[in-house]
């Protein structure tokens, strides 16, 4: 039983950055922009958020900086695509290259100069995975759901908030109208460009928090070149898996978190249930690493095969809107 709990616990742990990345991208796509720069924005948020958090020894400041710097990346994207009408695909890729470049640059420079900050106990205590009072004492469930890092609750909270925002609020309705038909929204008096800016920036910021989580919790602040390692790209694909709903994104992220968790827990699982899951051990670790990408590819293909009106990509997602176009 403990093995299963541990496994699911890890799934939630590894699913959290995906949750944030996916929600960020959903907000962006719902407002009509396809930002392929999630990986870059996560990287920017991760490195700068981490350094500030570690230097100041303050988690909140770190989260704020992660949000702001990722939002800055998103601002570049918004300026280029909304105001300057640049191609969204290329701009997003450029943003990824920029963000990852910046991340490596800062990390490497600090390592070389020996100024790379280590995490202090106060900070690591703040983000530690410890049981919540009362709820954490419930057998099994307490360990599975209520013994996480504070980040995990924050991520779920953000997902739920944006789910309500997009689905049940008036502003959310306007946002959705942007993605579906900006011309109609414009004709109804919605300020298209302003709303797009706000949501691209907000979406980017949320991704940045996801990046910070990868830095602090998953990698415990130890510098390496691959903190982000495709989490951003999986997030973009998860948006499709979650059919543009932040609520479904929570579950989608946990499922994808399981693939990641298999990498470290497959041995335990095989050991615990040799008859049913013994085969897990015979599969090389590289295939577990590959798994999320394979599943994502399959999701992409399958979702393109069935065509539905609702729960599909917003019709104008990825297309720039210029009012005077004829």
């Amino acid at each position: 039983m403990n093995t299963i709990i541990n496994f699911l616990f890890s799934a939630i742990k590894f699913g959290t950055p995906l949750m944030l990345g996916t929600t960020g991208e959903i907000v962006t796509e719902k407002s009509g922009s396809l930002n392929l720069g999630i990986e870059g924005m996560m990287a920017m948020g991760a490195i700068i958020g981490y350094i500030v958090a570690a230097r100041a020894n303050d988690l909140f400041l770190g989260i704020l900086c992660a949000f702001l710097f990722a939002a800055f990346g998103a601002l570049i994207f918004a300026f280029l695509t909304v105001t300057l009408q640049a191609n969204q695909n290329v701009t997003g890729l450029a943003l990824t290259i920029f963000g990852v470049g910046l991340y490596k640059f800062i990390g490497q420079s600090l390592m070389v100069s020996g100024k790379y900050p280590a995490m202090k106990t106060a900070l690591s205590n703040m983000i530690a995975e410890k049981p919540l009072p009362l709820l954490g004492d419930i057998p099994y469930v307490g360990k599975l759901l209520f013994s996480h890092s504070i980040f995990v609750y924050l991520a779920v909270l953000i997902c739920v908030m944006f789910w309500i925002y997009l689905k049940y609020t008036k502003t959310g309705l306007k946002v959705r109208s942007l993605g579906e038909n900006p011309a109609a929204a414009d004709a109804s008096g919605v300020n298209v460009n302003f709303m797009k800016y706000i949501h691209i920036i907000m979406g980017g910021g949320i991704c940045g928090i996801g990046g910070l989580y990868l830095a602090l919790v998953v990698n415990a602040g130890g510098w390496n070149d691959y903190w982000i390692n495709g989490f951003g790209w999986i997030s973009i694909a998860l948006v499709i898996f979650a059919s543009w709903s932040p609520m479904k994104a929570i579950f989608g992220s946990i499922i994808f978190g399981m693939f990641k968790a298999l990498q470290i827990r497959s041995g335990d699982l095989a050991h615990e249930f040799p008859k049913v899951l013994g085969w897990l051990q015979s599969i090389p670790a590289d295939f577990y690493q590959m798994l999320p990408f394979v599943v994502t590819a399959l999701v992409l293909i399958i979702s393109s095969m069935r065509k539905k009106k609702e729960g599909a990509q917003p019709a104008w997602c990825g297309v720039n809107y210029y009012r005077e176009d004829r």
Binding site: V90, A94, L95, I97, F98, V100, G101, L102, Y103, K104, F105, Q108, S109, V112
Partner: peptide, 13 residues
């Protein structure tokens, strides 16, 4: 850091 080339490339783009 060598990563500066990535940054320069993307700024050009």
């Amino acid at each position: 850091s060598t990563a500066v080339s990535d940054i320069l490339q993307s700024i050009i783009l």
